[in-house]
Amino acid sequence: MTVLVASDLDRTLIYSAAALALTMPDERAPRLLCVEVHESKPLSYMTETAAGLLTELGEAAVFVPTTTRTRKQYQRIQLPGPAPKYAICANGGHLLVDGVADVQWHAGVTERLARECASLAEVRAHMTATADPAWVRKHRVAEDLFAYDVVERALLPEDWVKELAVWAENRGWTVSLQGRKIYAVPQPLTKSAAMREIARRTGAELTLAAGDSLLDADLLLAADRGWRPGHGELADAGWVAPTTTALPERGVAAGERILREFLRAAR
């Protein structure tokens, strides 16, 4: 039986230093493996145990990294185990096959966005006009598909995020707050659609998924079984679904637990 595992990466399988949540005494902390370097500095980690589990998973199932990162940001990550044949980037906007973007898939995505939601230009202009320079550090566009702002989280007004979410919802977009980034993503741009396409191509009979943010909800609902960690947007909202297990672990320990669950279900 072919099993497909589509997993979010940041704060699900890999973690920045700030997101590790190492609450145990230092002498009991797990050994960590750096899996991403950016501008000559280590950026993302997983435990060495998780690295071994991911290697096993790559041999037991079709493992598909599934991320909102751009292709360039994804390609910085060096995951242990066999190189994945497929990867989903830009929240489903790009489907990579052996590291190369599927042009036809991307063309179909852009056509759908043009038909079904407000333009990126309109959303970006609204975010720029309403955000306060006192707490916005950067305005960014990802792959000409969606926008995000990098903010000072402590200064960010909750009301602004809520108002943006309502404004965006009325125009077919979703807002997600993840760490220091506020994403505005078109509702038709989904990880689940790309996962279904890969499942079709591979003939997968069982699909497994994991994720921590609002942008992962559709992926979890589309999979036969899913897991979410005890941190992140979904946990904070108390989000539940019949086929998704809410795990108690937080931080890098959650990544290790998710990989154990994937392996148990895939075998």
Rank of each mutant, 00 (worst) to 15 (best):
Q78I: 03
G81M: 09
P84A: 10
Y86N: 05
Y86K: 12
C89Q: 09
A90W: 03
G92E: 12
G92L: 10
G92D: 13
G93H: 12
L95W: 10
L96P: 04
V97E: 15
Q104K: 13
W105Y: 09
V109T: 08
V109E: 12
E111D: 14
L113A: 02
R115I: 03
C117R: 06
C117L: 06
L120G: 07
L120M: 07
A121L: 08
E122A: 15
R124Q: 15
H126W: 05
T128K: 11
T130M: 03
A131E: 06
A134L: 07
A134S: 12
W135P: 01
V136N: 04
V136M: 09
V136Q: 04
R137T: 08
K138H: 13
R140V: 14
R140F: 01
A142V: 15
D144F: 00
D144R: 00
L145I: 04
Y148I: 03
V150H: 04
V151T: 12
E152N: 08
E152I: 13
E152A: 13
A154V: 08
L155G: 01
L155H: 07
L156K: 01
E158W: 03
E158K: 12
D159A: 15
W160H: 06
W160I: 04
V161P: 00
V161F: 14
E163N: 13
V166S: 10
W167H: 03
W167A: 06
R171Q: 07
G172S: 01
G172M: 02
W173H: 08
T174H: 09
T174N: 14
V175G: 03
Q178M: 10
R180L: 09
R180C: 11
R180Q: 14
Y183R: 05
A184I: 04
A184H: 10
V185C: 14
V185F: 00
Q187P: 00
L189N: 09
T190S: 13
T190A: 07
S192L: 08
A193D: 15
A199M: 05
A199F: 06
R200Y: 03
R200K: 12
R200L: 12
R201M: 14
A204L: 11
A204F: 09
L206S: 08
L206V: 12
